[in-house]
């Protein structure tokens, strides 16, 4: 299914920022993809099933969730962090600001696939 990816702050992400960046707290807060309720029904899976989000800039596996901040049909939300940043467009168009919001994304449910921790993602870049 095709979506419009937006990233941003969430209060859980903010709490996990403070001394919890390498731990499970950060994974729980940020390695998630929030769907509109009706969009999620079309995915035909249980809440928490891993999904692979693919864009022109990369792919990442995160836990699926129904958004508490809906409706927002055709928009998916991944809180800011290494998971979202694996798939956003780094082009700044001469402003210094990457395009963190508004990336076209494809989502598929994955039956198996490990959700990486923040450090595992960054280590894979070295």
């Amino acid at each position: 299914m095709k979506f419009f990816l937006t990233t941003g702050r969430s209060i859980d992400q903010g709490v996990a920022l403070e001394g919890q960046k390498l731990g499970r707290e950060n994974v729980k807060a940020c390695a998630i993809c929030e769907f509109d309720k009706d969009d999620f029904a079309k995915l035909d899976c249980m809440i928490g099933t891993p999904v692979k989000v693919t864009t022109n800039f990369g792919e990442i596996i995160v836990y699926s969730q129904i958004s508490e901040q809906g409706p927002h049909p055709s928009i998916i939300f991944i809180p800011m962090g290494p998971w979202a940043n694996a798939v956003v467009d780094s082009e700044t168009y001469g402003t210094g600001m990457p395009s963190y919001k508004g990336t076209e994304a494809e989502v598929e449910v994955v039956k198996s696939g490990r959700i990486l921790t923040a450090l595992e993602i960054i280590k894979s870049y070295k």
């Binding site: 960046k21 800039f57 940043n85 694996a86 780094s90 990457p98």
Partner: peptide, 16 residues
């Protein structure tokens, strides 16, 4: 700051 978490992937790859 923690740019490894906050910057897009290709910027982080070069930083490292």
């Amino acid at each position: 700051s923690d740019p490894a978490s906050n910057f897009p992937k290709d910027a982080v790859i070069n930083m490292l």
